[in-house]
Simulated scan of single mutants.
Amino acid sequence: MTYCVAMRLDAGLVFLSDSRTNAGVDAVATARKMTVFEEPGDRVMVLMTAGNLAISQAVRQILVEGRDEARSLWKARDMFEAATLVGDAVRQVHKRDAHALREAGIEFNVSMIFGGQVRGERARLFQLYAAGNFVEAMPENCYFQIGEAKYGKPIVDRVVQPSMPLGEAAKCALISMDSTLKSNISVGLPLDLLVYEADALRVTRFVNIDEKNAYFRMIRDTWGQRLRQVFGEISDPQWDASLPAEFPLARQGEADRWGQPVRARRRRPGTPA
């Protein structure tokens, strides 16, 4: 019941999450999915969660309460070690709760996006799974999505690349979120948007977006209008192959074994099968 997207770019990181946890005719609830771990001048880490809320909150609490432990996000030497600690927290909750959940017919379902920067290394981004393992974003695939990802994926696939400025990436993330909000009731406002500038080692750009946010309202109105405009500018298919067309749909004078549909034949009474 959520959608989160994050991007690792040359200029830094972009994180966006919604806050819907339940949706139905008479059951709508919200909970913020983004948690920031910040030690200004030393490290900034961002965790976003999707899946079973009880599981993700338990993982988050383990990480928060680990501030004074020998191994914690506050003491991790680099982002890889920090991501390993998040995975360990997932496994700790799994060890405690998975059997009871299975007995109740509930799947151990959680996924996370975790990223940030520790002083002395570059900004990094990871996606974690229910088993506690993870993968890291690379230039060939510089973004991750969790939750209801399919509706917002096309715009990100077409637009995002590592060299993109942070402002454009934030705009793309918001358009991706708007597409998801439009198509799925299980995703909802308000949103948390955090844009991290590489080497800043502190949070400088964060906003909580509700239905009154002027920029997001502009995104929603403009994106819908422009989609309809572009749709109207694309030529309709030309079915008559004998007429000239810049982009013909039918191919004239060319044998095509796929040129006819698969037809079901009606068997007449008395004829052999």
Results as ranks from 00 to 15, higher is better:
145 Q>W: 07
145 Q>Y: 07
145 Q>K: 09
145 Q>F: 10
145 Q>L: 13
145 Q>E: 15
145 Q>C: 14
146 I>T: 15
146 I>Y: 08
147 G>W: 01
147 G>S: 09
147 G>P: 10
148 E>S: 12
148 E>H: 12
148 E>Y: 09
148 E>T: 13
148 E>R: 11
148 E>F: 09
148 E>K: 10
149 A>G: 05
149 A>T: 12
150 K>N: 13
150 K>S: 14
151 Y>R: 02
151 Y>A: 06
151 Y>H: 13
151 Y>P: 01
152 G>V: 06
152 G>F: 09
152 G>A: 06
152 G>Y: 07
152 G>N: 09
152 G>S: 10
152 G>C: 04
153 K>A: 15
153 K>F: 11
154 P>W: 10
155 I>W: 09
155 I>G: 01
155 I>D: 02
156 V>S: 01
156 V>H: 02
157 D>Q: 14
157 D>K: 11
157 D>P: 05
157 D>R: 11
158 R>E: 15
158 R>H: 12
158 R>F: 12
159 V>G: 00
159 V>T: 14
160 V>P: 12
160 V>I: 15
161 Q>I: 02
161 Q>M: 05
161 Q>L: 04
161 Q>V: 06
161 Q>C: 05
162 P>S: 11
162 P>C: 13
162 P>Y: 10
162 P>F: 09
162 P>T: 15
162 P>M: 14
163 S>Q: 14
163 S>Y: 10
163 S>W: 10
163 S>N: 13
164 M>D: 11
164 M>I: 11
164 M>T: 10
165 P>Q: 04
165 P>G: 02
165 P>Y: 02
166 L>M: 07
166 L>Y: 07
166 L>V: 07
166 L>A: 06
166 L>I: 08
167 G>R: 11
167 G>V: 05
167 G>C: 05
167 G>H: 11
167 G>S: 12
167 G>M: 08
167 G>I: 03
168 E>V: 04
168 E>M: 06
169 A>V: 14
169 A>L: 13
169 A>M: 13
169 A>Y: 13
169 A>F: 13
170 A>V: 01
170 A>C: 04
170 A>W: 03
170 A>R: 04
170 A>L: 02
170 A>K: 01
171 K>Q: 06
171 K>T: 04
171 K>M: 02
171 K>R: 08
171 K>I: 01
171 K>P: 00
171 K>G: 00
171 K>V: 00
172 C>P: 01
173 A>H: 04
173 A>V: 06
173 A>S: 10
173 A>K: 04
173 A>Y: 06
174 L>E: 01
174 L>N: 00
174 L>C: 01
175 I>S: 01
175 I>H: 00
175 I>D: 00
176 S>D: 05
176 S>E: 02
176 S>I: 02
177 M>A: 12
177 M>Q: 15
177 M>R: 09
177 M>K: 09
178 D>Q: 02
178 D>F: 02
178 D>E: 03
178 D>C: 00
179 S>L: 15
179 S>D: 15
179 S>R: 14
179 S>K: 10
180 T>M: 05
180 T>I: 07
180 T>G: 05
180 T>E: 04
181 L>D: 06
181 L>C: 12
181 L>V: 12
181 L>I: 12
182 K>W: 06
182 K>Y: 12
182 K>R: 13
